[in-house]
Structure formats: structure tokens, C-alpha cells
Design a protein around this nucleic acid. Structure first.
Lengths: 189, 189
DNA sequence: GTCTATAGTAGGATAGAC
DNA sequence: GTCTATCCTACTATAGAC
């Protein structure tokens, strides 16, 4: 373990609490208690509660944006791109499942530019996803199903991984990726 | 439109606000403003903010419990049961998409017996779902995939319908059910 | 870097007039 | 059934000592 900065420790502790109760229900006193200090002491390391939330969310949203851009610009077919998207979500979930709770459930509590920046990244991400699926249907690599439903159901599952993954003890990442591809793309019947 | 009781109007208005910002971030003053009255006046119709939340959530959870029990006790095969579960989620979503936001995101703010009651219903629901899938795999009606992943991915999608459905303008319920069955059960490749 | 003390605000809820 | 006024508590954040 590399030594973490005090700020990063606070952000990690906050991620866990935000996951359990949501941003609005977590107080600076709760967070301080989790860190073993008093609430006032937190402000030596962070500027505000809001700064903690935006750090958690924007960093993760930028990871997804970067990952998606790499996939979009690759020379692979639609199925391979969808598999890469599944990998991306699994990788991020393994690395920071707690933070993903805020990304998914507390983004609406971002303020000003951060909210706008987040909403643009999320919109672009979904649009890229949709184009990959549409392209796959056009090229007959994907069944001619309702595109919106494919995008919605796949994204719903991937976005919710953070809730489910921690309950699966010791599942291997490679196996998880393989099984997730099977279920999401090839169906169960 | 049948005339709604004032209490039901409050619960409906609260469902919308809870969906937008979450239970903790919505104040009684916010709710009162949405109703066009003062906060104190709300208390002539409801006992507490907590009562609003538990009314929304427990009612919906009981709908799912009743529906699931009916499906479990029917004489159908696994695939037919899964299709009925998809129908159940779509029906409830069409009827009360706003309330489902609280069920999904604010259940942890329930107190005491209501929290326990909810958690038991949710646990039983998932257990019933899991048994249907397991049974289907045993009888070779369902592919021998990872059962936990099937349960998780299907439930994730169905539970998130409330976020997606309102954005789909004028989609017919019957078509939605048909397409959802295709994507969730038969795969897209 | 952490503390105590506290400012300033906003929350849920009640009392009592109309 | 709604209002005004208000109680009490809890919140975020700051000031200044150590």
C-alpha cells in the first residue's frame, strides 16, 4: 500500500458513507467520526463537502470518457467494442466500487460547472454507446432488436455492478468478464 | 380522474421530488411549495416525513411481493415465469414510476419495522427469482450460465426501468414487454 | 494537523388563530 | 384546512488556540 494523502483518505471514507446513505444524509460529523477526528479538522484538507462529491464523481466520469474514446477510435467490430465496454465497467468497478455509488446516485447534487460537465460527459457516453449498437445492427453483427432497449438494459446492468460485485466473494475478474459477456450479449435461453 | 385524497396528492408530489433529489435532500418546505401550501399545513394530512416515505415504499414492495407469489405458485415453466416477472415490473413502472425511485434509492432511510419489513420482502423476492432461474437451468430450459449473473443483470434492468421508461415517448406497453423479453432472455447477438 | 467554541442557517415538527 | 409564529435540533463552515 502506498501512503495515501490525508485528502484521499477523506475521499475514500466519504465514498463509503455516501454509498451507504447518500450524499445528503451524510454529515461532516459522520465523516469526521469515520476518520477518527473532529468535523472542523476536515477543513484543513478539503474546502467543502461539495468538493468531496465533485472529486469522486468527476474523476470517475473522466475515466469512463477516456475509456470510451479509446474504444470508439479502435478498429474493432461492434461486438468487440461492446465487450471492451463491459471490460471497462468491470475494471472501474473493481478499482472503485464505492465511488460509483456517488456517480450513479448523487450526481444531481453537483453544483454549477461540475454538474454541467458531468451531464455532458454522461450524454456523450450514452451517445457513443448508442452509435456502436446502431452500427452493429446496420452491419448485421447485432440482431435487429430495439436499439434503445439494448442500450438501456446493458447500461443498467453495467452501472449497477458496484452494488452486486462486492457481494460476490472472490470471483475472478476474467471469469466475471466472460460470463457477463455471455449473459448480456448472447442471452440466457 | 377520480378525486384523490389530499394525503395521496401529497404522496404523489413527494414521489416526484424524492425521485429528483432523493429523500434526504427534499425538505417539507420544498414539498409544501410543490403543493402550493405552507409546510405546517402538511401535518394536517400526514404524521411525518418518514410516514410519506414508508407509505410510498412499502406499498410498492407489497405489490411486488404479491405479484411474485402469484408467479411462483403458477403452473408455468421457467421461461414463462421470467416473462411474467418482466410483465410485473413493466406494469408497476407504468403505474408508479416516480414511487419506484424511492423504492430503489431511498429504502435505507426507512426506520425500524418498516426497514426490516422491506428488507425481508426484498430478500424473499430475490430468493424466489433465483430459484426460478436455478430451476430453469436444472430443467435445461435456460442455458447453464452463471445463475447469479443472470439474476443480477435481469433485476438491474427491471429495477431501473423507472428511469428510462418516462423518456420513451408513447411506447406501447405490449411492444415494450415483447422487446424486453427478447433482449433480456434471447440476447442480442 | 487537530482541537474547542461558535457563527449563521436551515431542518422537522407543534401551538393556536382564523 | 391553512395560516403565522416559533421551538429545538442539527447542519456546514470559520476563528483562533495549541
Amino acid at each position: 500500500m502506498k501512503p495515501e494523502s490525508r485528502k484521499q483518505e477523506i475521499i475514500n471514507a466519504a465514498s463509503i458513507l455516501f454509498k451507504e446513505k447518500g450524499y445528503s444524509a451524510v454529515t461532516m460529523r459522520d465523516l469526521a467520526k469515520a476518520m477518527g477526528i473532529k468535523a472542523a479538522s476536515l477543513y484543513n484538507h478539503i474546502q467543502s463537502k461539495q468538493e468531496i462529491l465533485s472529486t469522486i464523481i468527476i474523476e470517475l466520469a473522466e475515466e469512463f470518457t477516456t475509456g470510451m474514446n479509446r474504444i470508439v477510435n479502435s478498429n474493432e467490430n461492434s461486438i468487440q467494442k461492446l465487450e471492451k465496454i463491459i471490460d471497462l465497467h468491470i475494471d472501474v468497478t473493481l478499482r472503485n466500487a464505492d465511488g460509483l455509488a456517488s456517480l450513479n446516485s448523487d450526481w444531481m447534487h453537483l453544483e454549477e460547472e461540475n454538474l454541467q460537465h458531468f451531464e455532458k460527459m454522461r450524454h456523450d457516453y450514452e451517445e457513443n454507446f448508442r452509435n456502436i449498437v446502431r452500427n452493429g445492427v446496420d452491419k448485421e453483427e447485432i440482431k435487429p432488436c430495439n436499439i434503445e432497449i439494448i442500450v438501456f438494459s446493458t447500461l443498467s446492468t453495467l452501472r449497477t455492478l458496484y452494488l452486486w460485485y462486492p457481494k460476490q466473494k472472490d470471483i475472478d475478474a476474467a471469469i466475471l468478464k466472460h460470463d457477463m459477456v455471455s449473459v448480456l450479449l448472447k442471452g440466457v435461453v
